[in-house]
């Protein structure tokens, strides 16, 4: 009975909160517009008023969740308000360009990933590059690897068999992926370019579409994130896992070899890294202040649990280290996509 009433109370509070959010949503536009503090004069102390934190993806996604977990702590550490704002579109490039266009004074920040900073401008011919961004530090790594799976009735029961068949008859086996310029699609392109194993990549709108097509027998395999539903279908025998894209085997798929084990040593680029960034040319002391604040937040238990403990590195990585990864990624993407 006690737990029942507790549940009721909790639910009622949430109901109130939901109504509140709906009201706030109406005002959020106004809040976003109101914080353009005039940042003139180099002597101005940082932070000078509220900080605007651009999230280039929509509310509810992993980028949004990570950024919103970080924002309140950053605000506390810098003794100001960090106001998150979703500016979406163009695989993150609309929000990123908004951030780049603002003064490099630390008052405008953004959460970025290698996809937005290094891949998008090359793939989509946009007129910005990673040179327009100054990296503050790495927030988190998402080590959710990709897994190559086939359906129940597939003639292939192992990665060796699948890739042998692909080599024997190039461009016959179809592999569904969740989108055209996703890391999975790029990795499959590299499989053809660097290892001469050619499969037909069939992009769908999101991984659900690809999985539906596999269930209906419309594609031979899919190469998707090893999210919960995929893992469960592997467990139930609907799907057979052939390979994972992480450098090491996954604890929940101990019998599934990595692509490295199958002989494709370099195919480990499909990871998501989130970093804190600002427009290029930010004063060094502002970068240092922001970096310290970020490092502090990444040891704050509340922030850590909200982002997900497994995704945060034990050792803080600075902006320079992130830049190193970006230039690696940029090289690979330029080679594949040309520029």
């Amino acid at each position: 009975m006690h737990s029942m009433s507790k549940r009721y109370r909790r639910s009622l509070i949430t109901a109130g909160a939901i109504m509140g959010v709906m009201l706030l949503a109406g005002c959020s536009g106004a809040a976003g517009a109101g914080n353009s503090a005039a940042p003139d004069g180099e002597a101005a102390a940082f932070p000078n008023g509220d900080i605007r934190f651009v999230i280039p993806y929509s509310a509810g996604g992993p980028t949004d969740v990570t950024a919103r977990a970080l924002a309140p702590c950053l605000g506390d550490a810098l003794d100001t308000n960090v106001i998150a704002e979703n500016i979406t579109g163009g695989s993150g490039s609309v929000g990123l360009q908004d951030m780049i266009s603002k003064p490099a004074d630390g008052q405008t920040l953004a959460i970025v990933s290698p996809g937005m900073v290094a891949l998008s401008p090359i793939a989509n011919g946009l007129d910005y590059s990673r040179e327009d961004v100054s990296s503050v530090g790495v927030i988190s790594y998402s080590y959710s690897p990709m897994v190559l799976v086939v359906g129940e009735d597939s003639p292939y029961s192992s990665g060796e068999e699948f890739f042998a068949a692909a080599e024997e008859a190039p461009a016959t086996l179809t592999v569904g992926v969740s989108g055209a310029s996703t890391p999975q699609a790029i990795e499959l392109q590299r499989l053809a370019d660097e290892y001469n194993v050619e499969v037909i990549v069939v992009p769908f709108d999101g991984s659900a579409g690809a999985i539906t097509a596999l269930l209906g027998g419309h594609v031979d395999s899919v190469f998707v994130n090893d999210q919960e539903d995929v893992v469960q279908r592997i467990g139930s025998g609907d799907f057979t896992a052939l390979a994972v894209s992480s450098p090491e085997r996954q604890a929940h798929l101990p019998d599934t070899p990595t692509l490295v084990e199958l002989g494709y040593d370099d195919l480990t680029l499909a990871v998501t890294i989130y970093a804190l960034a600002a427009p290029a040319g930010m004063p060094d002391d502002v970068v240092a202040t922001l970096s310290d604040a970020l490092e502090e937040c990444l040891s704050n238990p509340e922030t850590v649990s909200a982002i997900g403990e497994n995704y945060i590195l034990p050792e803080y990585q600075t902006g320079e280290e992130f830049d190193g990864f970006l230039s690696e990624a940029e090289k690979v993407y330029t080679r594949i996509l040309g520029s």
Partner: peptide
């Protein structure tokens, strides 16, 4: 907007706003 299959931008005239 972005070609769904190849990922190439179409008729966006270099604008990120039209990528989608």
């Amino acid at each position: 907007g972005q070609d769904q299959i190849s990922g190439m931008p179409r008729f966006n005239f270099g604008s990120a706003s039209l990528l989608d």
